[in-house]
């Protein structure tokens, strides 16, 4: 019994935080997702997100929104309607340098991540 408890304690100590199907790595400003388990298309989309979105804010904001279901700044629900609205906002943000296709890809990724987080 004692060795089992020790084993569980050690397991907990070295476990990476997970939200259902998502694997969150790092903390604070360094927080991001581990895309190794994503389908290839979503992995490619994550590469776009990782480069474009961090131009203005850290990935922590996105990860918190996806894993909690609440947009961290506005406190509003972060659902499929919100991902489309944020995508539109970033498309129209003059200095975002995101094309429509890139925004669409990232919105699809966020919808996929929301579904994974809910599992």
């Amino acid at each position: 019994m004692k060795s089992f408890v020790t084993f569980v304690a050690l397991l907990l100590m070295f476990t990476t935080p997970c939200v259902a199907g998502l694997k969150v790595v790092g903390k604070g400003d360094a927080m991001s997702l581990d895309p190794s388990g994503f389908p290839p298309a979503m992995r490619a989309a994550y590469d776009i997100m990782r480069v474009k979105c961090v131009k203005c804010h850290t990935l922590e904001r996105t990860v918190v929104a996806i894993t909690t279901g609440i947009a961290p700044i506005t406190g509003q629900p972060f659902d499929r309607g919100a991902t489309r609205a944020y995508g539109t906002k970033m498309l129209r943000k003059p200095d975002s340098n995101m094309s429509k296709q890139e925004v669409k890809t990232v919105v699809d990724l966020m919808n996929y991540l929301i579904d994974e987080a809910a599992k």
């Binding site: 894993t67 909690t68 279901g69 609440i70 961290p72 506005t74 509003q76 629900p77 972060f78 809910a118």
Partner: peptide, 26 residues
Amino acid sequence: VYTGKTHAGQEPEAPAGAGKGGPEGK
């Protein structure tokens, strides 16, 4: 006040399955 709240102190409920934690949680 951040936009999206239709009346003072009101806001939509969190979606089903949404976590409670986070720095700006419920």
